[in-house]
Amino acid sequence: MHSRPSKGSILHACIIKQQLTISDFEKEVARLKAEITTKDESESQGGRGTSEQNDLLIRMEHELLFLKNELMTLENIDSSLSCDKIEEGAVVVTDQRIFFISTSIESVDVNEVSVFGLSTHAPIYTEMKGKKKGETIQFNGLRYRIIDVY
């Protein structure tokens, strides 16, 4: 394995990934709003498609709000704090993968190391919470040995 990525580097990569995801969602919401507006102005279109698009727009706006809240969670993590047990803000190195306890983010690559963003609401977090280096976690038939927590 490559050198251990710093918590600051991991947090920075997660924030950038979240910002890019939010940007993509904002563009899609704007596109959908423009499409709905265009259809509303055209009397030759039936109302059904617009209703489905309105439902999609509402779902996307809710997801966008969720993503922005997740970004705030990331921005509130102090990367200078060291953790000796698994809690929000901890980097957890296991024999299977590296987790960053923060928000649900697909893996990010930091210095050629893949780190998986894990929400405190994820079921596996319930099994991990409070554990320390040297302990093990059982989840979905997999066993994770905790190599390091920082």
Rank of each mutant, 00 (worst) to 15 (best):
residue 141 G to Y: 02
residue 132 K to Y: 11
residue 52 E to F: 14
residue 53 Q to K: 15
residue 133 K to Y: 04
residue 34 A to S: 11
residue 19 Q to A: 05
residue 73 T to I: 15
residue 21 T to M: 08
residue 93 V to N: 01
residue 135 E to A: 06
residue 44 S to G: 06
residue 122 A to I: 09
residue 111 N to R: 13
residue 60 M to V: 03
residue 97 R to F: 05
residue 81 L to W: 05
residue 123 P to E: 03
residue 96 Q to G: 02
residue 18 Q to D: 01
residue 145 R to C: 05
residue 135 E to P: 03
residue 66 F to Q: 12
residue 147 I to Y: 01
residue 44 S to R: 08
residue 106 E to P: 08
residue 82 S to E: 14
residue 14 C to Y: 03
residue 67 L to V: 03
residue 136 T to I: 09
residue 125 Y to E: 04
residue 6 S to N: 08
residue 71 L to V: 04
residue 30 A to K: 14
residue 110 V to C: 00
residue 68 K to G: 07
residue 70 E to W: 05
residue 140 N to W: 05
residue 106 E to I: 08
residue 32 L to T: 08
residue 64 L to H: 08
residue 125 Y to D: 04
residue 15 I to N: 02
residue 43 E to D: 14
residue 107 S to M: 09
residue 95 D to F: 01
residue 106 E to Y: 12
residue 104 S to N: 14
residue 77 I to D: 10
residue 4 R to T: 15
residue 137 I to T: 02
residue 2 H to G: 09
residue 21 T to P: 01
residue 119 S to R: 03
residue 146 I to Y: 01
residue 71 L to M: 09
residue 63 E to T: 13
residue 143 R to D: 10
residue 107 S to L: 07
residue 121 H to A: 13
residue 6 S to G: 08
residue 44 S to D: 13
residue 121 H to T: 14
residue 113 V to W: 01
residue 98 I to R: 11
residue 123 P to S: 08
residue 62 H to I: 04
residue 81 L to N: 12
residue 120 T to I: 13
residue 52 E to R: 14
residue 65 L to E: 10
residue 6 S to Y: 01
residue 123 P to Y: 08
residue 29 V to W: 05
residue 150 Y to H: 02
residue 139 F to L: 05
residue 137 I to F: 00
residue 132 K to F: 07
residue 93 V to C: 06
residue 77 I to F: 01
residue 19 Q to R: 11
residue 66 F to R: 13
residue 1 M to C: 07
residue 115 V to E: 00
residue 98 I to Y: 02
residue 86 I to M: 01
residue 82 S to Q: 15
residue 88 E to K: 15
residue 35 E to K: 14
residue 104 S to P: 09
residue 148 D to T: 04
residue 55 D to G: 12
residue 148 D to Y: 02
residue 35 E to H: 12
residue 38 T to R: 15
residue 51 S to H: 11
residue 110 V to D: 00
residue 77 I to W: 11
residue 90 A to E: 09
residue 148 D to V: 01
residue 117 G to W: 01
residue 71 L to R: 12
residue 72 M to Y: 12
residue 133 K to R: 12
residue 124 I to L: 09
residue 114 S to N: 11
residue 43 E to G: 15
residue 92 V to E: 05
residue 64 L to F: 08
residue 83 C to F: 15
residue 27 K to L: 13
residue 6 S to P: 01
residue 47 G to A: 09
residue 108 V to T: 04
residue 41 E to M: 13
residue 116 F to S: 11
residue 40 D to P: 00
residue 11 L to S: 06
